[in-house]
Design a protein around this nucleic acid. Structure first.
Lengths: 196, 196
DNA sequence: GTCAAAGCGGACCTTGGGTCCGGATTCTAC
DNA sequence: GTAGAATCCGGACCCAAGGTCCGCTTTGAC
């Protein structure tokens, strides 16, 4: 037997909370002027419900994040090129990081909230583990590239939520320009075949 | 006239607080199990004193950080090569970032505390502005390198406190290995003259 | 020595994450 | 349909920690 099926109201409330949180974070200036009570209120639910369903703030953020990330995860794992596994490393690395960047551009507040509320550091979240592991594996196949472990960390660091927020928010760097700059940076790291 | 000289007890207490905070952070596992009350207590001082002297938690952290950073700042601004201004860009960029990395390795908890308590993001702190501005200026002089602004951000991101903490703390990467990996990464970014 | 200004410090306030439990709801068994 | 138990709801409540306040003390100028 799989597992005792949850009650109807439980799943309904869970959805309501996720939807409310998503909306609130999208509207907000800074993720931490959204309190748990705000979310509960907006979802028409008590705080207890919210904490029982998600454990704590980080849990809620994680759930939201994973839900939003799902399509990308699938495209990466079983999709067609340039994200899917059949892509040669030299093209897949920039494609992966571009996907991460675009995701964070599209979900700025959420990504920000998650990375800063991550008890400890973002590096303990298991979704970071996944991205890092994948990226490292792909980098491993790039000829002439050593230190794939550190390189994967360094490249992912270039797409950190607060950096993205700073560039897109404060410095008003346009989306396409940022993508181009990241791509060019990656090109240099992968072997500098660009212009010299 | 300069400014009304502070009272003796005021400066004495300020020193005491900085010293106490430094010790506490150095000993601690995670920076946020050190409370303001702890610091006040360890310094033999009331909370009021502490907040009057530094404004808020972030202010105290900033003061400590800047104090520790002072020697490096001087070495960078008016010192001899490889950190000083007389160094050719190709050597100065790695030297600068190596200095940052070493600093964060030597002051892990403090750097961590500062970056995570920075109201908003680390990118609003003015010491980040300084490092970024300097690094960008130096990168500007590297032949064949475009996007010096983004590149400076990306390189600094590779030395973020929580990444350093994760690598040095959780993954037990030895100091010299980390320095070597960072250096090699930078080399590739600067023009990939390494091996291809 | 005197007096005003600057500083001190701990009691107190506020905020927000997280808990608890009496009552309402839903599912299952008959 | 209904009884009963397991599950869930939700808002009152708790607590920790950052930050404020104000009566008392210390300092330093005259």
């Amino acid at each position: 037997m799989p597992e005792r099926k949850s009650r109807k109201d439980a799943v309904r409330n869970r959805e309501a909370v996720l939807a409310a949180a998503d909306t609130l974070f999208a509207r907000s200036e800074s993720p931490d002027d959204i309190t748990m009570a705000d979310i509960a209120g907006a979802a028409g639910v008590g705080k207890g419900t919210l904490f029982r369903a998600f454990g704590d703030r980080a849990g809620l953020l994680r759930a939201l994040y994973e839900a939003r990330l799902e399509p990308i995860r699938e495209a990466v794992e079983t999709g067609p090129p340039p994200l899917g596994p059949a892509t040669p490393p030299q093209q897949r690395v920039p494609a992966l990081l571009d996907a991460v960047l675009c995701f964070k551009l599209d979900n700025r507040r959420l990504a920000l909230a998650l990375e800063e509320s991550a008890s400890g550091s973002p590096y303990q979240a298991e979704h970071y583990e996944r991205w890092h592991g994948l990226l490292q594996a792909v980098l491993e196949q790039v000829p002439g590239l050593t230190d794939s472990d550190f390189t994967a960390h360094a490249l992912l660091a270039a797409t950190r939520a607060d950096l993205v927020e700073h560039l897109a928010g404060q410095e008003r760097v346009p989306r396409e320009e940022m993508r181009a700059q990241l791509a060019s940076f990656i090109t240099r790291v992968l072997g500098g075949s660009g212009r010299l």
